[in-house]
Amino acid sequence: MSIQWIAVIGTSVLAFALKYVGHSVPPKWLAHPRITRINALIPIVLLTALVAINSVTVKTKIVIDHRMAGLAVAITALYFKLPFPVIVLGAAVGSAIAYHFGH
């Protein structure tokens, strides 16, 4: 089985299990302040790391390339509070332009 299939099935099973557990366990089990605090920080660190890794790495090397132009457009769009689709599309356009200049 390919990496992709294992990832799709494993993630889907665990995603549902987490959702279902929330609906089924006594609230006090998960309402501990420490759990709530850590849970609020988890998306911040993981999503930021995903930004970094997907912007400037290829496999296990740091590579600065056309993607930086896309990231710069995305940050500018966010600064001006533009909506999510504009951010993603703008980044794609910026990156594509930089790619064509580099090739």
């Binding site: 998306p43 930004v51 995305a74 993603v88």
Partner: peptide, 22 residues
Amino acid sequence: PSAWGLDAAVPAAFIGLVWPRL
């Protein structure tokens, strides 16, 4: 995908998701 900028769409989506939390 690189020619269409799709490789930058992924980090852009992540930064769009995390930005409101900062």
